[in-house]
Design a protein around this nucleic acid. Sequence first.
DNA 1: TGACGGGTAAACAGCG
DNA 2: TCGCTGTTTACCCGTC
Length: 694
Amino acid sequence: MMVESATETIRTASSNQNGVSSLTSQSEGGGREGGSNGDANGEISPVDLLHLQQQQALQAARQFLLQQATGLTSPSSNEVKQSPVQVPVSMAMMTPQMITPQQMQQILSPPQLQALLQQQQALMLQQLQEYYKKQQEQLHLQLLSQQQQAGKQAKEQQQLGSKQLAFQQQLIQMQQLQQQHILNLQRQGLVGIQPSQVPIQGLQQAMCPTDLQQLWKDMASVQNPDEPIKHEGLDLSTNSSNSTSYTASKVSPQIPHHPLPNGQNSMHTPKRDRARLFEWISSFTKGESSDEHLISYPKGTPLQSTQLSHEEHTASHPLYGHGECKWPGCEALCEDMGQFIKHLNSEHALDDRSTAQCRVQMQVVQQLEIQLAKESERLQAMMTHLHMRPSEPKPFNQPLNLASSASLLKRDSDPFPEGLPHPPTSAAAPITPLRQGPSVISSSSLHGVGPIRRRNSDKYCTPIASELAQNCEFYKNADVRPPFTYASLIRHAILESPERQLTLNEIYNWFTRMFAYFRRNTATWKNAVRHNLSLHKCFVRVENVKGAVWTVDEVEYQKRRPPKMTGSPTLVKNMISGLGFGSLNASYQAALAESNLSLLNSPTLMNSTAASLNMLHVGHDDVSSTVEQVNSNGSCSPGLSPQQYGHQIHVKEEPAELEEDSRPMSLIASVTQNLSMPSDDRDMEEELPTEELE
DNA sequence: TGACGGGTAAACAGCG
DNA sequence: TCGCTGTTTACCCGTC
């Protein structure tokens, strides 16, 4: 919408030679555009509304100016009649005769168009204000001179004064709107300019590096239009025509902050424009002492070879790379360093052009530094905002710039490995992308439309228990699909129940109670729930007096996902080689031995042993399994273990289970089975403070 | 590129 | 007969 408005502005402005009339077209076009869009979309965005208001204010100002220009018959009306000339100065700049609006739209990117529009409007505001000041002074003098005249005329002047007041208010409103508009655009990242900023700053911020590079070329060609820069293998003059169009489209709209008095297009007078450009470059960098030491050569003194002699001996030169001259806008091909030095001395000797280019480069660097500072500040604020939540658990208070290996370490050390990308209220949001996890809330999940083809790997996720605890209300109220698998949800629902068993209908109810998302499309997700219950061996159907209930076989659940050490292969290799399978067996044996003695009474030791096993062989999905039970229930409530159930009810056939016992992946299960540990004890065992192991 | 896990849809059977 | 429950299969998609 904003870009469309900008292009519309350019289109109407260029199609109309009268700047005032073009404003009419612009405002009316913008109004229609906003209205039509509003009708089409059913609502007008604040940006559109702001733009519309701005257009209306501009139109009001224009009408007032027209009224002033045509209706006043004062001795100083000569200046008033100049208003169509004065005011359209900006309009003349808005109507570049060297380039069509269509070309401008094709050449300029939307942010650039936006920046252009902003600068034009800011300039126009400034000119309107100047004009208004003059008008006000004239009217003031006029009032003084006409005080002796009849009261009728004085009355008209009072009316005129009221109009002036209204106009002044409109101007203030326009200024405010302009500020808001630009601030809004800045927030959106479209422009980075302030209305009062020097054009090059807005130019630099609105342009991408390639544009700046092109600008350098343009400047080079503008600087020496009569003597095209001849480069070895690259003749910039060949693209000077192209660069002219770029200059017209990119540079010219920015330059008019030093407006030509008659509003002529600068591109028609290359020599004068070149001088003006030179003066412009020199002017905005004037007085900066910081750059003087960089350009300390006496003006006019040719660059002495001795001044670069030290660079000749260096293997590399900051301005030379990949066989090209890296001087801004040059890109001349140089075969070797000597040729480059020769080129540097000949083409980039100390002259006004090089000086100006150097100054502009300094401005570029300054702007980049400012931009970097802003972005860093923004990042810091984001981090502060996301990390300072009081309710956030400690595992997520990690620095953002984690390397992949660090992420792996964190993941492995995550005491709540099973989990998921955090919803918006979670502090783990910035970590999610680093974990390559899916977006926290995809568009599909936000709208809840269509099948969700997301695979939320548990290993990249936060614990479901803590996740749900943190964002329980969110999921209850928001129609957002929870980033958990059906199996995880079902398991959590079952484990959350007092008896750790639920009927199918109770599982349904839990889904609908906990998640607003599951309050619709019941057929789909209920089918999925049933499908998961039947599909996964970890869900055990138990028939009791009440009917059939579903329980969770933790062992099977842990088997559900084969343990895989993902992440840095080197790190994995080091970890495995560090302990070794022999040491693993030793740990395993030690665990068994310890368990026979004191393990049951020493959860801490158990934790360590089990944790070491988990570190190697069990994914955090497994690690988290019973942690969630503890977390969700707050205590290890007694419940029947699947093994206990196994003798009293029929359990799904699990063929070839014995084979798996020999697999290292089932160490935890093996340990627990060998220990014949009650499920609650297994819970304690798997409540792994793995951070302590680090 | 294939294996695998997960989501979805659908068909079917048993049961109350 | 209908609805619920449970099982199974197929297909698609994303990840590894």
